[in-house]
Design a protein around this nucleic acid. Structure first.
Lengths: 158, 158
DNA sequence: TTAAACTCGGACCTTTTTAGGCCGAATTAG
DNA sequence: CTAATTCGGCCTAAAAAGGTCCGAGTTTAA
């Protein structure tokens, strides 16, 4: 178990797809849906979310579509998750401003363990860039990357 | 989002509880349910799972119950997760020997990214000991720990 | 030998979350 | 004006998570 959400997969698929395109060339949802079999609407929403956070640039109308707007080696997987799924929290009690609180909050003996886990997991996700993920581990040598290089995102230093 | 399962929380609660007991003293599910408000049956199942993997020692009958049987600083969070939730895999495609395979497997462009993520996440969970988690980060100075010390489980070295 | 206090484990139900689809509106190029 | 797109609200179905019931096996002790 311990799956990531399908939406996140679709995001990665789309981003990887766009990454292989010439700079300035746009990608439509339809195109992705057709090529990879992703459900159109869900994928659309995901891309909208990413556009909202300006990881993507979107344009409506004919000849519209999406293109990557941020250097993906500077976008962490943590950020991607939050954009798509909302604020991270490994337990209900970490997400106050939520509807119903945890039943055990009065008697719970593991608040600090939970907080520790949340912190560590967040740090881990923050240490992983979307570019690194998409490239499957191999350090990016594409034009995008070398254009903005700077910090080449080393393997795990959590 | 990105919650851990409730079962895992119950496991941590129970383990932390048992950790504070004198060696040899047993804990019943009823006791935990009463003290922390965990649902009895669910908690029972979790403890059964841990007993099955001999993290706990169980004894039936009157005066029965559970006690910790393994040095928790030598049990990784990864192992705990697997005991409770089964084999880890961030995506369906990583868990063949499952019912229905992923629809996209023919056209998917993110197999290696998914594998990378799964590997890294696994490594992260493996680097975290249950003892470390339960103690909320503070290095364990309890009798259990110093009795078996050895490797004091340093902070993150992923 | 009987009763009480446990763990064990199967089957089942309920609620929540996730996934996906439908449709109409707004936007833009030709 | 029309076709191609993003945008966003709402709704349904499927799956997972969370929890309950209940009967059976074990062990202690009255």
């Amino acid at each position: 178990m311990n799956r990531i959400h399908r939406k996140v997969e679709y995001a990665l698929i789309a981003l990887k797809h766009m990454r292989s395109k010439a700079p300035g060339e746009r990608t439509t949802v339809k195109e992705i849906a057709a090529q990879y079999g992703c459900p159109t609407d869900v994928t659309a929403r995901v891309l909208q979310a990413l556009a909202g956070k300006s990881v993507l640039n979107s344009e409506q109308g004919a000849h519209g579509g999406y293109m990557i707007a941020k250097d993906l080696s500077r976008v962490s997987f943590y950020e991607l998750l939050e954009m798509i799924l909302g604020p991270m929290g490994v337990a209900k009690c970490l997400q106050e401003a939520q509807e119903g609180a945890c039943d055990l909050r009065e008697t719970c003996n593991i608040v600090s363990p939970i907080q520790l886990l949340n912190r560590k997991l967040s740090d881990f996700y923050r240490s992983l860039s979307v570019a690194e993920l998409i490239e499957g581990g191999r350090v990016n040598r594409t034009r995008e990357a070398s254009r903005t290089a700077g910090t080449p995102v080393v393997e795990a230093e959590v």
